[in-house]
């Protein structure tokens, strides 16, 4: 009885697979980007702090922004995981939507994390020599950050479908 329900084209047994992959890819790729951003800007902070240790509070900002990328992925992964269900009630269409949402926030977070890492490294090293670069570094970091935010917006919009 239930096997005939599961085998209908709308609710196949592999329907939730796509949703699970969406939730997993949301957090995996976001965390990958955040880790790259943290590590790359962390080497810049470590090199800069040797000469200007009083600037540590200002130079932590790229690391914090890289961490926020991972929180975007976490939010989408939690949203998708809340909707996952058995194949009887979880349609294949929902699975595709959730896979798309997870991939959009995941790869946007990966790109934003790369940008934050590279900008944070160079910006922190430059701020140690010219403190007026700080405002420019913050602006560039914010523009890198909104790339991840765009992915989050698209993911939430997809999620409402």
């Amino acid at each position: 009885m239930s096997s005939t329900e599961q085998l209908s084209p709308e609710n196949p047994i592999y329907g939730p697979f796509f949703g699970v992959m969406g939730a997993a890819s949301a957090i995996i790729f976001s965390a990958l980007g955040a880790a790259y951003g943290t590590a790359k800007s962390g080497t810049g902070i470590a090199a800069m702090s040797v000469m200007r240790p009083e600037l540590i509070m200002k130079s932590i900002i790229p690391v914090v922004m890289a961490g926020i990328i991972a929180i975007y992925g976490l939010v989408v992964a939690v949203l998708i995981a809340g909707q996952l269900d058995t194949p009887v009630t979880y349609t294949l269409y929902k699975g595709f939507i959730h896979l798309g949402a997870g991939l959009s926030v995941g790869f946007s977070g990966l790109a934003a994390g790369f940008a934050i890492g590279i900008v944070g490294d160079a910006g922190v090293r430059g701020t140690a020599q010219q403190p007026r670069l700080f405002v420019g570094m913050i602006l560039i970091l914010i523009f890198a950050e909104v790339l991840g935010l765009y992915g989050l917006i698209v993911a939430i919009y997809l999620y409402t479908k």
Partner: peptide, 8 residues
């Protein structure tokens, strides 16, 4: 960011 900029 506000605290880091003005507090620093």
């Amino acid at each position: 960011v506000y605290r880091a900029y003005f507090g620093g």
